[in-house]
Amino acid sequence: MIVPFGHVLMLAGMLFLLGVFCTVTRRNLIMIILGVEVMLNAAAIAFVGAALHWQSLEGQAFVLFIMAIAATEVSVGLALIVYAYRRSGSFDPSSYNLFR
């Protein structure tokens, strides 16, 4: 007997909120990606907790896919950031407003 499932969910939710906060408020593209990683992390915790709660390996399998998605997102995202940085010399998302 570890902890109630609700506590796991609350921890995941709190982490998710931190990730959202980072993504939304930090004026830095790398930090935005970092916030996304934090959110994915929170989701993974919730899935693993759910797998334990319902005694099913489905949740753990899903975390595997989350990991793959995270790896993809980070590699492409960081490459895009570097590319954009070379073109504009800035990490500030507010300077990327050509479409405005």
Partner: peptide
């Protein structure tokens, strides 16, 4: 257009 600042974080904020 004021809403549409062209900044990705506002969009994220909005979707949140």
């Amino acid at each position: 257009a004021f809403l549409q600042s062209g900044m990705i974080q506002y969009r994220l904020l909005a979707s949140f």
